[in-house]
Design a protein around this nucleic acid. Sequence first.
DNA 1: CTTGGAATGTCAACAAGACTGACTTAAACT
DNA 2: AGTTTAAGTCAGTCTTGTTGACATTCCAAG
Lengths: 165, 165
Amino acid sequence: MSDAPGGESLLFLTDEQLRQGIEAMFFAYRGFTADPDRILAGMAYGRAHHRAIHFINRAPGTTVNNLLVLLGVTKQSLNRVLRTLVEDGLVESKVGKADKRERHLYLTEAGEALERKLSDAQRARMRSAYRAAGPQAVAGFRQVLEAMMDGDLRRKYQALRDSGT
Amino acid sequence: MSDAPGGESLLFLTDEQLRQGIEAMFFAYRGFTADPDRILAGMAYGRAHHRAIHFINRAPGTTVNNLLVLLGVTKQSLNRVLRTLVEDGLVESKVGKADKRERHLYLTEAGEALERKLSDAQRARMRSAYRAAGPQAVAGFRQVLEAMMDGDLRRKYQALRDSGT
DNA sequence: CTTGGAATGTCAACAAGACTGACTTAAACT
DNA sequence: AGTTTAAGTCAGTCTTGTTGACATTCCAAG
């Protein structure tokens, strides 16, 4: 192996390699969101609704505050989305038992149905990418993604991940 | 190895694993764009300007049409961004020699300076993620990302990649 | 050679979804 | 009682996407 200082090949750290990684990330994210976007285009919903539905499904009973921190948006922005989802009967908002200021969010049956439709499409693409790349590549993929997160987000991601088995 | 049908471990294809991958992608993309976003927030520019600048730098002399296919937006959307960049002296738009309908796009010195500033920040994060994960993980990361792209985009990505050495 | 269609790019108007800032209501804490 | 916290609302702005209409240029078929 023709390698750089460090005793180990650092070819993967050249600017060209990094640039390719950046572009791969850009194009892959487009693919990643393409299927749900297509499904939502017909309805009056967008990517913001998808994200809200995803995380409510993931952590049923979560509060508005939790959700907006997770999504990284302001409450005004989230509220617009949440309002339409509640009005359309996809999300239920229940006053907190212990703390009545809080609202706990749940998907209704209709909400779960849409969630399934969206995540089935997204998982199908993910599954085919995973299958094409193989288990070892998937492990690497996950490692790099985690290292790319901001510390704060990483903690939130890991908490979510560990809660789901 | 306790494995599923196929003779090989398919644990990495469980719905839970796929869901974690989806969330990792979501959070990582936030980190991925965070630094350039911060830099651009001060100026009157946004992510769209960054993308235009990135790809013009990547393929100097590209036409508007090329660029909008790469970016996946309408020409009207791209045009607004491009107009401000030209007005502000970051991008130069030259009428095509062979075909006068076309405009060929180039970064000016000021444009190149901004490009460097943005991509330095983004590359720094990428580099630290790559370094933390190691070469083998990076190879896997790239494999999965490529498999996640739509066929059309993948071809564009690969053409771009291969042109850059 | 002309003319009509196709390709390229521009202008205008609008919508989604993010933001800030100011404010209200209700409940909890001290 | 007074302060803080959670949630929601109203108003206004910005970025970035969309359609629709239009101008210019090229090219090919008649």
